[in-house]
Design a protein around this nucleic acid. Structure first.
Length: 605
DNA sequence: CCTAGGATGATTCAGGCA
DNA sequence: TGCCTGAATCATCCTAGG
């Protein structure tokens, strides 16, 4: 069933051949277009943070949205962005500072009521917001460059009446406009936001418990069915303000990790039958999309990620079912889940099978069969020396205390036995093999050993991703056009290639030059003939740029990528700041770009 | 400047047990 | 139910040495 693409195979493929010069010209034109756009004030907030009344791109909207869902007013956000640019950390700091000032009665005796502390889950945010904006601003005051992109302009909102501002604030928090209106009528115009949120939540709770309530209404109320309403929201906001390392906490049932972590199924475990899932209408392609990140992110992160990707339930899969190393990851995608097949041959799934030379030295008391997650750093030589001495000092089987210490360190650093009493970290080519990359994929071309580990540690496990992508093979026998965001060392491209799906046009976005070179070199080594256009910054990809790309080869079939996990990963002791972290906030670029691609391809732009 | 080594916990979740 | 323990975790920053 599976055909791994051989050299001969790839030569037989009927490629869309294009003169290299022509490709270069297209590429140059697109690059210059993007640069031009970047410097000609297309962004509502330019470098100096000046607000513009022209159309506001989705990126900015999403950037603002992340603060709106925390309960900050759009005025404060606009002010904070003006002062700090689009740096999440700085903007958040500024917002918290505003909040402290506004909460101080001595300094601000007449604080605006819309800044009343409150917070909500943002699952229903967009929907309610759209309703709200439809109702309130039928033809003015805001602009949007897509149906899914709602943008706020500072000047207009500040010209609203107090009532309208209250309405706007509550709608931004996710409360339905109709319910806000009713609450304002019943509680009176003098009512504080706290009173209004309490009233709305009480009403929602009472309806949620109503056995005669239609089922299609109940899910929307799920997030308030198990809490104490506005009080809890305000309490959460207060927690939010306590420190910088706050997170959005969700009222509704948080997304939990499945056990076993096999998603919709893996080829090596006879788990529950493949489910036929129903995707929300707006999530259905084209294009197909596939998003990845660490499964063990801080609480609430996956809820937020899903809320920006059509509320699709993430598929959590541990790659230990595909190879000898664990890799717990979440994937949100709109691919079919039936008819998947794995890459063949199936890779070895135990340490002994994957590293047969280590078998000879493996002590019986080290019962590991799988390696832990392959990370970006390795154990030091000094550590392996300490372990050697600890084990050498005893005759025969070491005492439990030593065993425990050694095993703990081996698990922590993924050490393997390479000699009598001798452990060592994995070699880079072993990591390549475990992750499903060809040998020497990251070797040479100016990359250091340390950076090889780093690039590999940040990559996909190819067999896992390929299994999910395998359904594309029958759908695109002639090959596909791929938009690969946060490409890294090309895990997605390698997966598609190994599935035998020809890569016609690949637009790859990757910050690291070393990684871009690895992908380019791999393509040359494998004699691929499609086009590779690469960018170094996702933020360069604006609507006009994407439009030109899509015009030049007729649209993307797949938008794939895993955004930075730095601020989500448990290993990060310094800046595990969640989705608002410096790097991880680039996640918001993914739905922004996906929306743009969808809209351009639907001809709605 | 580049590279490698070393020191640096917190946040989750699961399972056991009183 | 609450507490404890164990386990896992796509990392960051500083420094020394070439």
């Amino acid at each position: 069933m599976v055909k791994n693409l051989s050299k001969e195979g790839s030569d037989k493929i009927d490629w869309d051949t294009e003169d290299e010069l022509e490709i270069q010209e297209i590429q140059d034109a697109i690059f210059s277009s993007c640069r031009d756009l970047r410097t000609t004030g297309q962004h509502a907030l330019s470098g100096d943070g000046e607000a513009s009344s022209s159309s506001v791109p989705c990126r900015l909207s999403k950037f603002i949205q992340q603060f709106v869902v925390m309960g900050f007013s759009e005025e404060s956000i606009a002010k904070a962005i003006e002062q700090n640019g689009e740096n999440s950390d700085l903007v958040l700091d500024a917002l918290l500072t505003f909040k402290v000032i506004e909460d101080s009665p001595e300094e601000q005796p007449t604080a605006s009521p819309q800044l009343d502390p409150s917070i909500c889950s943002d699952d229903s945010y967009s929907e309610y917001n759209e309703n709200f904006l439809d109702d309130v601003y039928e033809e003015e005051s805001w602009s949007s460059d897509s149906d899914n992109c709602i943008c706020y302009l500072k000047d207009e909102s500040s010209s609203l009446s107090e009532n309208e501002q209250t309405l706007l604030s509550l709608a931004n928090m996710g409360y339905p406009v109709e319910e806000v209106s009713i609450a304002m009528e019943i509680c009176g115009k003098e009512a504080s936001l706290a009173e209004l949120t309490d009233f709305i939540c009480a009403a929602q709770m009472s309806r949620a418990e109503d056995p005669y309530l239609p089922e299609d209404v109940k899910p929307k109320l799920k997030h308030i069915s198990n809490d104490s309403g506005g009080y809890k929201k305000r309490k959460m906001f207060n927690q939010l303000c306590k420190g910088k390392k706050q997170r959005t906490i969700f009222d509704e049932d948080p997304i939990s990790l499945p056990k076993p972590m096999i998603g919709f199924g893996v080829p090596t475990v006879s788990g529950p039958a493949m489910v036929r899932r129903t995707l929300p209408k707006q999530a259905v392609g084209p294009p197909f999309f596939y998003y990845e990140n660490v499964a063990l992110a801080p609480k609430g992160v996956w809820d937020r990620i899903a809320s920006h990707l059509y509320d699709i339930e993430p598929e959590f899969v541990d790659s230990k079912y595909f190879c000898a190393a664990a890799r717990k990851r979440g994937y949100i995608h709109n691919l079919p889940v039936e008819g998947r097949f794995p890459l063949l041959p199936l890779p070895p799934r135990t340490i002994n099978e994957a590293l047969p030379l280590s078998k000879r030295w493996w002590p019986s008391w080290d019962t590991r069969e799988h390696l832990n997650c392959l990370q970006t750093a390795i154990g030091s030589a000094r550590l392996t020396d300490r372990i050697r001495k600890a084990v050498e000092d005893v005759d025969g089987v070491p005492p439990m205390r030593v065993q425990k210490y050694v095993l703990e360190q081996c698990r922590k650093w993924n050490l393997v036995w390479v000699g009598r009493n001798k452990v060592a970290p994995l070699e880079p080519d072993e990591v390549e093999m475990l992750l499903g990359f060809p040998k020497n994929h990251t070797r040479g071309g100016g990359i250091s050993r340390t950076d090889r580990y780093k690039s590999l540690g940040n990559s996909f496990q190819v067999d896992t991703v390929a299994y999910h992508l395998s359904v594309l093979k029958d759908l695109y026998p002639e090959g596909i056009n791929v938009l690969s965001l946060f490409s890294g060392i090309g895990g997605a491209e390698v997966a598609l290639y190994r599935l035998g799906i020809p890569l016609k046009n690949v637009v790859s976005v990757e910050k690291s030059e070393v990684n871009r070179n690895i992908v380019r070199s791999w393509r040359e080594n494998t004699n691929q003939r499609g086009n590779l256009i690469d960018f170094d910054d996702v933020q360069q990809l604006n609507g006009d740029c994407l439009e030109q790309l899509i015009d030049s080869f007729g649209g993307f079939d797949l938008v794939i990528g895993g955004s930075p996990c730095n601020n989500l990963a448990g290993s990060n002791r310094v800046s595990r700041d969640g989705l608002e972290g410096k790097e991880s906030s680039l996640f918001f670029e993914y739905p922004r770009i996906l929306d743009l691609v969808k809209n351009i391809m639907c001809g709605e732009r």
